[in-house]
Design a binder for these strands. Sequence first.
DNA 1: CTGTTAGCGCCTTCAA
DNA 2: TTGAAGGCGCTAACAG
Lengths: 364, 364
Amino acid sequence: MKSKRVTLADVAAAAGVSRTTASLVLSDRGDELRISEAAQQRVRRVAAELAYRPNILSSALRRGSSRTIGFVSDTVATSQLAGDLIKGALEHAHRNGYMLFIGETEGAADEERRLVQGMIDRQVDGLIIASMFTRVRAVPAGVDPRSVVLLNALPEDSAMGTVPSIVPDEYSAGRAAVDVLRAAGHSRIHLVGAGPDRGDVPVQTVAGSERLRGILDALAEDGLEPASARLCSVWLPEDGWSATRSLLETGVRGEAIITFNDRLAFGAYQAIHEAGLSIPGDFSIVSFDDHQLASWLRPRLTTFALPHYELGALALQVLLEGDASDAESIRRVPMPLRLRESVAAPGRGTTEAASSSRQTAASP
Amino acid sequence: MKSKRVTLADVAAAAGVSRTTASLVLSDRGDELRISEAAQQRVRRVAAELAYRPNILSSALRRGSSRTIGFVSDTVATSQLAGDLIKGALEHAHRNGYMLFIGETEGAADEERRLVQGMIDRQVDGLIIASMFTRVRAVPAGVDPRSVVLLNALPEDSAMGTVPSIVPDEYSAGRAAVDVLRAAGHSRIHLVGAGPDRGDVPVQTVAGSERLRGILDALAEDGLEPASARLCSVWLPEDGWSATRSLLETGVRGEAIITFNDRLAFGAYQAIHEAGLSIPGDFSIVSFDDHQLASWLRPRLTTFALPHYELGALALQVLLEGDASDAESIRRVPMPLRLRESVAAPGRGTTEAASSSRQTAASP
DNA sequence: CTGTTAGCGCCTTCAA
DNA sequence: TTGAAGGCGCTAACAG
């Protein structure tokens, strides 16, 4: 980068001491090893004057630690939902003097191998293996399990307990979604995206099955079942739209819907609005993710937020603290409720929340 | 990371040659320096068997290049719009054997200084200084201008010409937005977000003033002016909603709107729909950004895409190729048109595009 | 054709 | 209290 770099030897020479002395002073061990106050002052002053900066590469070579962490994800950096995953990890890293390498694999195993290898070649102190959506995945081969953490991913059975794992607490959020609607007085709750049985979820989505499990458990405790459920193999607005249309055709009104994510909810809003119905007057809706969209919709969408920032920060913290080998190696981070205007008491008609002046499905 | 690392010395010993020989063979200079075929084979075989990987830190120390680039942005990693900026840079880097450090400053100057410094301490070969939205900004102090590129940012006058800069071609997109509407037969074009005069843009947005300049120039060439214009100091859905409502109150119908970004367009859709009007029957809309949302709206939104991926990739390419010191140091990347269903010929009533079965503003 | 020697910049014994 | 020497892993000069 820069042609001429100031080295420790330069500082030592300019201060008239040996490299050792300069090194000790600058790593704050001068007092400990009783180096004369005068010499210390001189070294510090000269270092400041020359704007000396230790070369981390050489110190890494000598001491083993590069103060660098690798962050490898399938496609997390690019997804908006998960940008905060990186952000949490980055900020925590920088606060502690660490730098982060970022890599995206697009799900390709050989690309993952190359990225992980490239990071190890650069002597990273640890690796975060992240996934955009929560899923079960293998730990890359050939890495020291003591310095890896899975982020938004669960280890395969074989690696269970050997590698720490950070995931959102989807199960509790599922339960809480039911609680919100029950508290508003609803007992007829329709599901859009998954259900009615535990196995009725899109393939490979941990979030789906955990949310569903939480919902069914919470309902069961009140002796209830979903009023209806529609499985969508993909969770995009379009899918939410069709599922909700199909629900509307059954003629139900004044009940509640849990959509399995906010994009499905967006589609549900559109379908309900097209049918000339209103939210939350005709349907209360609760969702998951807290996509940016959720607060753009009108009425604003009640949803459980994926705690991306916290997940990312925690991953780094676990990695740095290194107390990885706890028995409790899976950490579930709470998904906070964003209580907004899409929920009201059951029954057709205008409710307090529904009486706002801006009523159409998608008005701001 | 790993406790025991295979070193070049290990390979040399196992192959029964000196470290130099091993080094030469493994860096493919064996033939050049005429090392015996037998020795080369042995070295390669042993290296493969031991899974030898050169330690890039030590080679960086010796040779100067760490095959690592620093990417510092204000808040780009977290924003969805700009995730592809990083992606473009990452992929181009990885394809060329480079690794990327990522840093986010949140716009804080001292944080930026620390991050840049942290990267230089790790001997990065170059720096990409990125901005989430296009703006004019200073080059960080103390970095070699030959190894820096500004991404989605323009250098201050003082640094103009010394540092390459990669930005979207907003001006041409502004012109092209007018062209799209003119080609559809529109001559009455309303602006939502900026205008009517060149100076009427939110502060500090290069995108705003360039888009506006392009629009006004293109109109002027046909002897036209905007039919109306509404400046919004912020470009969120809410702002587009109010501006569009105010436009609707003037009673115009069957004309065209250019919104200055897709979130404004989202608000415009909502307002038009609330008024019981349709797109593109009552209003044709053209926008900028190609936000994810644009293809979720119904009818899908015609918009000019920010070429984030290309911007990021080009930044890296310019950095690696090092032909930075061209006279032409600002590179403008075209913003491709995403022609969708939100544009039709002027005049109230159902048009071919408007006759689709799904007509409400926000239906999927 | 191959090995020896000498650093890159830092840290860490070990002597003085 | 300070300095000399050696080595982390790699590469480049220079011999042989």
